[in-house]
Design a protein around this nucleic acid. Structure first.
Length: 608
RNA sequence: GCCCCCGUAGCUCAACGGACAGAGCACCUGCCUUCUAAGCAGAUGGUUGUGGGUUCGAAUCCCGCCGGGGGCGCCA
């Protein structure tokens, strides 16, 4: 928020260097002065001193004490700058130049800016790059578990982040609606359950998972298998293969069965997207990309990127390291078409990337996919590069660690999964019981809505406050904790703001726009304003580094500062002038918290 | 064999190459007739796995080692 001041002072530092025969600093980096209490910006002179020291060493061979010299430079710069308008004082400490803001003036500017911009506070200027974020690639004929939820929550936060940072953003999902897993469910459904259909979107979706688990068990070879078991299993296997063949051949009965059951999964998926606040712009179905993707194989062969080993009974492959001219093995070789002419994931991903670039004109492509696919994703990007797509350099794999259970990895095949819907239902129950205890005056209807917002907030924040490439062991109690470093803690801070504002209005206090912060600000107020002012730059940094975590941290820091302020600075009972200023600050703080939470896809309740 | 990720307080995790490595949980002590205690303050807790290197400065970058996880031509 203070780029203008920073730039002006940077210029003066540069001219100071010229006048004093110092090397030109490569970069003058500004950061907030750490340690609470006062508020300002800071830069250091270590680099400059080291640059100078190197020159002296070259000329005279003499060594220089860099920290000491940095402090000297900082001190003379402080003297050179003298009194700078807008800053109350300047100091040189340990090689750092600290410029402290005139609190009242800047406090007012920060607060006014936030309130003028409202929901847009923190947003970046529009940028020319178009970004596509692909996330939520669950298989149909399954149910949605917390591993899928991590993907969807992270992907949505990423999409909101780049969008808020100023990029044109396209959200894309890529459900896997074909393959052996899907056929397995079709077979078992047709064989044992045809005609049955549970009522309720989630019941139906979960039922398909149950069928899948049963079917897998029936098709799995058992240790103590009898001759009879074996015969039965083999005949089941035969039936499944027949089902796959018929699907491939476009058999109307099987296709109809597939479409019907697939729709059940999609109904559930759409409902979950709805719950999570996700609105996809583009749906790429695996079944749609399958056949057309074969065309790119010929193209890659023609271009000399892929090698066709089918005449010798092999597949179509790309020797990536060789084509890149690498000596050491790094990206290896991968198959882009099976020897029997059927497609692989890679076939489809390459074709899909082409569509993204050519039809959707995507400049940057973000893939939110399990970190275990990391080599695979690198292979995709490298092949795209060989293929001549300049956008390949701006493809980014946002990997995330997998979610496991205390008892081990989740396994859909074995039915050992924690379903997202179950966790959410439990979260809402827990919130309701907390409300009953803490805020029984909330009306029944509002309670339900608050339970949804807070329960979801807890879940989402638990997923987003951990670095994406760290694995998560899902702990029911930890994920649904409402105290401390959690979503509800942050929501609660915003709710406290609402409380104050509501009460102010009830007491007939009129809010004013022309309010000065002409009093000795408490350290908590300074800290709060400081954090608020960082939001715009944090948004840019987080978007450029593809790190929603940064925003999750900022949201928490804001909430903590607000709670501290709440405790130390009375608002309604303060002197009238201070009261008006603090009310404005409360409004601004609420807006900043609401905006950071919005990036994370977390709603803020009015009360809780 | 090669590649990727991780190792920070008892536990779960933060920390643009920068100033005293911070939170939460758990445990202990205080604070509700004062804007909702889903809160605040305080106490305890660290040779950032290990040995080198680069740098004025390293949890962060580079190399070796130890430990954990993941991946590596017709699965997705």
């Amino acid at each position: 928020m203070f780029e203008h001041e920073q730039q002006k002072i940077s210029e003066r530092i540069r001219s100071f260097c010229v006048q004093n025969d110092l090397p030109q600093p490569v970069e003058i980096a500004w950061s907030p002065v750490p340690f609470s209490g006062e508020w300002g910006i800071s830069t250091s002179f270590f680099q400059l001193a080291a640059q100078e020291a190197r020159q002296i060493k070259e000329r005279t061979g003499q060594g220089v004490n860099v920290p000491q010299r940095a402090q000297e430079i900082a001190a003379s710069v402080a003297e050179y700058l003298g009194k700078v308008p807008g800053f109350s004082r300047i100091e040189a400490v340990k090689g750092y130049l600290n410029l402290y803001f005139s609190s009242s003036e800047y406090a007012r500017r920060v607060v006014d800016t936030v309130l003028a911009q409202g929901r847009r506070f923190g947003a970046g200027e529009p940028k020319s790059d178009r970004v596509m974020v692909e996330y939520a690639q669950p298989n149909t004929h399954h149910s949605f578990h917390i591993g899928h939820a991590r993907n969807a929550i992270l992907g949505e936060a990423m999409a909101r982040l780049v969008e808020f940072a100023g990029y044109e953003t396209i959200r894309a999902t890529y459900p896997g609606d074909i393959g052996l897993g899907v056929i397995t469910v079709l077979w078992a459904y047709d064989r044992f359950y045809k005609g049955q259909e549970p009522q309720g979107i989630h019941e139906r979706g979960q039922w398909l998972l149950k069928i899948y688990v049963e079917a897998t068990s029936l098709l799995e070879k058992k240790e103590d298998e009898t001759e009879e078991d074996k015969k039965r299993r083999e005949s089941y296997e035969q039936e499944r293969r027949e089902m796959l063949r018929k699907w491939d051949a476009g058999d109307p009965y099987v296709r109809q069965l597939w479409k019907e059951t697939r729709q059940w999964s999609l109904d559930e998926l759409e409902d979950i997207f709805d719950i999570l606040g996700i609105h996809m712009d583009v749906w790429f179905f695996e079944s749609d990309v399958d056949e057309p993707s074969k065309a790119i194989v010929d193209e890659l062969i023609r271009l000399g990127i892929a090698e066709d080993e089918r005449p010798f009974g092999g597949a179509v492959i790309v020797k990536i390291d060789e084509k890149l001219g690498l000596k050491k093995e790094k990206y290896r070789t991968n198959v882009i078409l099976r020897s029997d002419g059927t497609t692989l994931y890679l076939t489809k991903d390459l074709a899909l990337a082409k569509v993204k670039f050519e039809r959707y004109h995507v400049d940057r492509s973000v893939y939110v996919i399990d970190v275990r696919q990391s080599l695979y994703m690198q292979q995709v990007f490298k092949i795209l590069e060989l293929w001549g797509f300049p956008q390949a350099a701006k493809c980014h794999h946002l990997g995330y660690g997998f979610v496991s259970l205390p008892e081990g990895a989740m396994s859909a095949r074995r039915g050992r999964v924690v379903l997202f819907k179950d966790v959410l239902d439990d979260a809402e129950r827990r919130v309701l019981s907390v409300i009953a205890e803490k805020n029984p005056s909330l009306s029944g209807e509002v309670r339900q809505e608050v339970a949804r917002q807070v329960g979801l907030g807890a879940l989402k924040y638990a997923m987003l406050s951990v670095d994406n490439n760290k694995d998560i062991v899902f702990d029911w109690d930890a994920a649904l904790n409402f105290d401390g470093h959690t979503g509800p803690y942050i929501q609660y801070a915003a709710v406290r703001c609402n409380s104050i504002l509501r009460k102010a209005s009830a007491e007939g206090i009129e809010l004013q726009e022309d309010v000065a912060f002409d009093y000795a600000l408490d350290a908590a107020e300074v800290q709060l304003i400081d954090l608020i002012s960082r939001m715009p730059s944090e948004v840019q940094r987080a978007a450029n580094e593809y790190k929603p975590l940064t925003i999750a941290n900022l949201a928490y820091d804001l909430a903590r500062a607000l709670n501290d302020f709440y405790d130390r600075c009375p608002v309604l009972k303060a002197e009238p002038d201070i009261r008006l200023a603090r009310l404005r600050l409360v409004m601004a703080a609420r807006q900043a918290i609401v905006n950071t939470l919005a990036i994370l896809g977390i709603e803020t309740p009015d009360a809780m």
